[in-house]
Structures are given as structure tokens and as C-alpha cells.
Design a protein around this nucleic acid. Structure first.
Length: 530
RNA sequence: GCUCGAUUGGUGUAGUCCGGCCCAUCAUCUCGCCCUUUCGAGGCGAGGACCCGGGUUCGAAUCCCGGAUCGAGCACCA
């Protein structure tokens, strides 16, 4: 049988090789046209489909620690979750996981700033907001329930002592206590009869589990909230027993009916721990997908707490310092939220650790801002040339398009004098002129001949092929600074800016031959990218 | 060390489940050309990749085995 098949396959392969696939196709068309109807593999676009996602029923969440405003990295979680919510007509929850008052104390202002940043990024508020520190008693309830069911116990071993048991795959002596005893100890924990480190609630798993991280993992611990009060006014020192991430997050996901969790792959063990927790309760764990680490080449290693320190020490001017990889900074510099969304969607969802470049973000941003950015002349290192010849040819008004592809945006105009005129060009462009017998074309104006600090108009119409440069008239320009920030320093470039357009604060412009910039005020521009 | 997981051009991705329309997609990048009175935008074109070694098969990026490399977790952080 197989021999017969082999014979025919060989025959077909030979035919294909000798007479081409078209020949085979014809034979098939004649004899068995149904075989030609292939299901065409659809090309995926953007984010991959979520497993078991039902239209209208998807619930997602993103849970940052509010110990600072959002970093660029956070924006991935917000974009991906909100995009999926949109795609499936579901909803997504913004949850503040603020359960560590000691090592990662929340920043009170972050609760609001994060919400604003989310809105800027996605165009609307999240469907729901949850603050973990408001829900401590709920978490207690589930802890008590699990303790009484024998699924958790109070462990009075120190972290170091327990580590021994974890390593040797043997049970903590506290493990065999009865639920009644554990409930009593639980009350003691809540009443403050233990100091931090003296007691912890552990989820019973199996000390022989191959993955050491999962062995009787800790669910709630004691924090000294007298000396380290929670920064929220309504919480402060109200609780001393606090849930750990794996417990808090697991319970909350269940309570909110989260169907899909999208998280970093560093949280893979969290999934496994929480799955064990869900088994105790008989719950079904959400679908989970992971992403890998993202490194942006131009941004070094920044951590939220590190930035917080540096700002405090005055190393940076604030969370929106242009050198910092925060959303606040990118917002201030003038990135379009749509560009950030497109960037993350294009990177998609894989477990690969990736290193991307800012150039990719720039390219996304240009696509969005270019067709609406008014053009402007900004002359760095200005050099003044007195017009000494050809003044009679000058029109009374200079006129050029606000945007080269969109006449509806109008014209930039300025009045010129035939009596006296000083042209301002960039020092660097003088070299360009040098290469062309000291001749150059002033964009939309005239060909000039330069001689020392003077210039003569050769003709208004282009006379020969000369490099075209941007320029200014001294009477129609004013001093301005362009702030360019590179990785670790801020450079202030002084120059001249044209008067013709009065741009509002935060408007984006394209400085011709320089790049895109954001208007801070009349005489200050912040460079975005080229 | 133990436990997970990943590996497609310079950088990201598609395709891998279910082997053959894949001498491998799209974007970015680089380089040409066109257009344009900006070094911008736009248009066209070119460049460049299946981690390695075996195996299965008529046929492997795709399946199997082995190895390498990279990353994460093994916290009373999130």
C-alpha cells in the first residue's frame, strides 16, 4: 500500500520538477478541482487572538504598583490590555497593587497621575479602578476561609529557617497544626501579637514539588505600619497583616471575573502559585499569556524607585524630565499616544526578550504628526548677512506654505523692506555655500551670492541648481532656544525663530531641516526627534 | 544547582498547533532612484534571516531526539 502511494507521489513530484507546478495544477483542475480549494491561511495582523475569548465577555486587568508615575514599560500593559478589551468588546480594570508599605511605598500622587496617563494613552478612562489597600478585609476573609479548610497555615519559622525546609523538600513543623489552632494564631496575627517576620500565612501545596518556588508559598505577612504607615490617609496604620502579590492578585482576579491575564514572563511562577490557590477553592484559573522583557536601546536601566531617588536628589527636574523613560516625559516631549499604541501593537506579544530602538517609535510618531505639524524656520548659530545688492527686486511680502502638502493650513508671511534687509542663516550653511562659489538658495525667496558679511540677490527665481537652506529676516524673527536632550544631558541651543506663526503651548511644529519640536512658549522649543 | 521559558535578516514580527501554495510575511533600518524650493513627508526598487547537530519523510522553519545560547523564578517585593 505505502509502496503504491510512494510511487504516485514520486510521479507527481517528478511532474512538478520537469513541467512545473502549473502543469500539476492543470491536471488537478481537470480531475479533482475540489482539491485546489485550499483554506488560505489568514495573515494575522497586530495582536494575536486570545485563547477562549468570547465577544463581550472578556475581562482584563493591568496592575501597576503606584510607587511612581507610569514608565514607558508600563505603557505596554496598558496599551495591550485596552486594545484587547476594545477588540473583544470586553472591559479592563486598572488595579493599584499597593500592598508593600515598606520596600515599595506608594506615592500618593501616583494614584491620580496614573489614571490621567492611562486616559491620555488610551483616550478614555479604564472600565474600573480597584485599589488593593481598600480591599484588605476582603482578602482576610478568603484567608480565614482557606485556613479553616486546612488549605493554609500559620508558619512561625523565619524566612531563613523556612528556606532550609524548602531546599530539603521537608515539611515545616507548623504544617500539621489543626485548622482550629491555625485560626487562633491567625487571630493573634491580626491582633498584633506577632512582630514582622514572626508569622506568615502559607498556602499548603506540596513540599516535594519540583519547582522550589511553589513549595508552601507565603500568602500574607506582617508589616510594621506604625513606622511605615501606608501613605493613603484612609489606610495609614490600619492594618498590620498584608497580603502578598500572589495571594492578593489571585483573589482579586477571581472576584472581578478576570478571564485573561497578560503579564510579564517573570510572573510565570505567580501563575503556577495562583493555580494551586485556585485549586484549593475549586476555581478555574484565567487564560494567561506572557510577554518578555523589553529594552529600549536609548534608555538605560531605570527603576521606578531609582528614578524617585534621583529626582529627590535633584539629578532630574521631575518625573517629566526629558531624559527619563516615563510617560510623563514622553507626553511633555510631544509623542502622540497613537504612536505609542502602534509601537506596542507592532511589537506584539511574544515571550522573547526584545531590544527595540527609539527610532522605531520616532518613525511611528512621524507618521502621525507630520501631516498636521506647521513648518517653521529656526536658525541655529545665527549669522547675519547684510543685503547690499538687489534690494529693488524684493517683494513687499514674503509668503510660504504653513505645510507643504496642505494648502488649507494657510501661509506664513512677513513684510519685507526694500530699503534695508538683513538675512540670517546658519553658520553651518555658510560651508554649503562655500562649496558652490558662495552661492546658495534661500528657500522660497532668492538665490544669493555671499561675500564676507554681505549678500547680493542674484535672482528671485532659481537661476541654477543650488542647495536650498532655511533662513530668516532680522526684522521678522526673535531669539529662541531649542532644548535637545540626549541620554544623559540637556543641551540648550540658542537661535532665531520666525515671528509669523504664534503657536500655542504644547503645539507641535516641524523646524525645517532640523526636526520636530514642541512649543513650550514663544521663545522656547523642546526638540522631539528628526 | 534546581525549576520554567524563549531562539526566523541589524532590530521587531508573520508562519510553527494541523509538514508541501515558504527559494519564508510585514514594519523598521541601510542603500539607490522618483517626487518635492526642508536633510521632512510621500512613491518605487534593492539589501539582509529559519541557533547547531542528528533523525523521520518523496518533502522540515514547521514533527522527534540531542546540544548550544539567552532570559526569568527559586523574597515575609510588585
Amino acid at each position: 500500500m505505502t509502496l503504491i502511494i510512494k510511487k504516485f507521489v514520486e510521479e507527481a513530484n517528478n511532474l512538478a520538477e520537469n513541467q512545473g507546478l502549473e502543469h500539476l495544477r492543470k491536471i488537478l483542475e481537470e480531475n479533482a478541482p475540489e482539491l485546489l480549494e485550499r483554506k488560505i491561511k489568514e495573515k494575522r495582523e497586530g495582536l494575536p487572538e486570545l485563547k477562549n475569548a468570547i465577544q463581550g465577555k472578556v475581562v482584563l486587568r493591568f496592575a501597576p504598583n503606584p510607587n511612581g508615575p507610569l514608565s514607558f514599560g508600563h505603557s505596554r500593559g496598558i496599551v495591550i490590555n485596552s486594545e484587547y478589551a476594545k477588540r473583544y468588546g470586553g472591559k479592563w480594570i486598572l488595579r493599584f497593587d499597593d500592598t508593600d508599605t515598606v520596600r515599595k511605598p506608594p506615592l500618593p500622587s501616583a494614584y491620580n497621575s496614573i489614571q490621567e496617563e492611562v486616559e491620555w494613552l488610551t483616550g478614555k478612562p479604564p472600565d474600573k479602578i480597584i485599589i488593593a489597600s481598600d480591599r484588605i478585609e476582603t482578602y482576610y476573609k478568603y484567608a480565614s476561609e482557606l485556613i479553616s479548610k486546612g488549605g493554609a497555615y500559620i508558619c512561625t519559622l523565619s524566612a531563613e529557617e523556612f528556606r532550609e525546609f524548602r531546599q530539603s523538600k521537608s515539611n515545616s513543623p507548623d504544617r500539621d497544626r489543626s485548622p482550629q489552632e491555625n485560626l487562633m494564631l491567625w487571630e493573634k496575627m491580626l491582633n498584633g501579637e506577632f512582630q514582622p517576620g514572626e508569622a506568615v500565612v502559607r498556602i499548603k501545596t506540596d513540599m516535594t514539588l519540583p519547582n522550589p518556588a511553589l513549595r508552601d508559598w507565603p500568602a500574607l505577612r506582617i508589616q510594621d505600619t506604625k513606622n511605615n504607615p501606608h501613605p493613603r490617609e484612609s489606610i495609614k496604620s490600619k492594618y498590620i497583616v498584608w497580603p502578598l502579590l500572589d495571594f492578593q492578585s489571585g483573589i482579586e482576579d477571581y472576584l472581578q471575573g478576570v478571564t485573561h491575564i497578560i503579564r510579564g514572563k517573570d510572573l510565570m511562577d505567580s501563575t503556577r502559585k495562583q493555580t494551586l490557590l485556585y485549586e484549593h477553592f475549586g476555581w478555574k484559573y484565567p487564560e494567561t499569556v506572557y510577554w518578555g522583557r523589553v529594552k529600549i536601546h536609548e534608555f538605560g536601566g531605570f527603576s521606578t524607585s531609582g528614578m524617585r531617588n534621583d529626582i529627590k536628589e535633584g539629578k532630574y527636574s521631575g518625573w517629566d524630565d526629558p531624559r527619563l523613560p516615563t510617560i510623563a516625559s514622553m507626553q511633555r516631549r510631544g509623542f502622540s499616544p497613537e504612536a505609542l499604541r502602534n509601537f506596542w501593537i507592532e511589537l506584539a506579544l511574544t515571550q522573547k526578550d526584545i531590544s527595540a530602538s527609539m527610532e522605531t517609535i520616532y518613525s511611528h510618531n512621524v507618521k502621525i504628526i507630520d501631516h498636521t505639524s506647521p513648518r517653521l524656520f529656526f536658525v541655529k548659530k545665527p549669522l547675519t548677512l547684510k543685503l547690499i545688492d538687489g534690494l529693488e527686486k524684493i517683494p513687499s511680502v514674503f509668503k510660504t506654505l504653513v505645510h507643504p502638502e496642505d494648502e488649507s493650513l494657510g501661509y506664513r508671511t512677513w513684510k519685507l523692506s526694500t530699503e534695508e534687509m538683513n538675512v540670517i542663516i546658519e553658520e553651518e550653511d555658510l560651508e554649503l555655500a562655500n562649496k558652490n562659489n558662495n552661492k546658495i538658495r534661500l528657500k522660497d525667496f532668492a538665490d544669493i551670492q555671499i561675500k564676507e558679511n554681505t549678500a547680493s540677490i542674484i535672482s528671485l527665481k532659481p537661476n541654477e541648481k543650488l542647495p536650498i537652506i532655511h533662513w530668516l529676516d532680522s526684522k521678522n524673527s526673535h531669539d529662541a532656544t531649542l532644548e535637545i536632550s540626549t541620554e544623559n544631558r540637556i543641551e540648550l541651543i540658542s537661535g532665531k525663530l520666525e515671528n509669523s506663526l504664534r503657536l500655542e503651548k504644547n503645539e507641535l511644529t516641524q523646524l525645517e531641516r532640523i526636526g520636530y519640536a514642541k512649543v513650550e512658549n514663544d521663545s522656547k522649543l523642546i526638540f522631539l526627534h528628526d
